[in-house]
Simulated assay, not measured.
Amino acid sequence: MNSSKKKTLRTSDIMTCALARILRDGENVFHGVSSHMPMVAVMLAKTLHAPNLNHLNIPGGVNPKTIKDAHYSSAGLELLNGAEAAFPLSEVFDLSMRGKLDVAFLSGVQFDVNGNVNASVIGDYNKPKVRLPGGAGSAVLIPTAKKALIWRTKHDKRTFVEKVDFVTTRGNLYKIVTPLCVFEFKNGRLVLDTIHPTSSLEEVMENTGFEVVCDDIRYTPEPTVEELNMLKVIDPSDLRSKEF
């Protein structure tokens, strides 16, 4: 890719579109609090290619009509606007444990080569350097959802490590979308799925704390004109970029 075109591509757009494309029509998809990028990705998928996707969220509004006013949280009452039904959070956990939750959007602070997720502590558990928020719903949803879809807006050797400092949860890890690439969990380990057009294999390797392996060198498709235009409609406040 030429450098001028590379500069025009925004990481937040690449990540949002990559997340949206993973979602399939008819799936039950849940995102939690502080999940602006997944929230926008769900709306993008539902608008462009997955009209029968069921958008589930913490306030409980199933398939809200708009997210335009969700300025402060991805778990606000805006997600009840025009909703088709009410489905409270407690029912989401039950749905997942019954094997009916297709995708759960979750995150963490550390991820290791074996797909373990740390959202608890950095350092020794009894004398940690940093005490993190903890697993919350991820300890239930990652093991029980059909696909745990992770997004993380930081990609460095402190985030992607050989072994996490503490295993908060593990389970049906599917893919991790980062500012540099997409990892896939395959045969018991994270492998490189695609490299973003704004990055390179060398950059991914330099910023990953475990050996990067892949079957083929493939690149994440660039956002299409249709996707970019729709993002302006459904996310005029650019909520998808809040974490950067």
Rank of each mutant, 00 (worst) to 15 (best):
A119P: 00
G171E: 04
D156E: 08
K157I: 12
T169M: 09
S120P: 00
F93P: 00
G99Q: 14
A139R: 05
N172L: 03
K100A: 12
V161C: 08
G137V: 10
L149M: 10
H155R: 08
K147E: 01
N172H: 06
F93M: 04
N118T: 05
K129T: 15
G108A: 13
P133R: 04
G137D: 06
T159F: 01
H155Q: 01
L101M: 04
A145H: 12
E91S: 14
V130C: 05
F105S: 04
S96Q: 10
G135F: 00
G123A: 07
D156W: 10
T168N: 00
V167N: 04
L106T: 13
Y125S: 15
N126L: 13
T159S: 10
K154G: 02
V113Q: 11
I150E: 03
R131Y: 08
S138I: 15
S138M: 15
I142A: 08
K146I: 03
V121W: 06
D112V: 09
N172V: 09
D112C: 05
F160A: 12
F160R: 10
G99I: 06
S120C: 07
F166C: 10
T144E: 02
R170I: 01
A104Y: 03
I122N: 00
V92P: 06
G137W: 08
N118K: 02
F166R: 06
L149T: 10
T153V: 11
F105P: 04
T153E: 11
V103M: 00
L141W: 05
V167L: 06
N116R: 15
K100F: 06
L141P: 02
A148G: 09
D156H: 07
G108K: 12
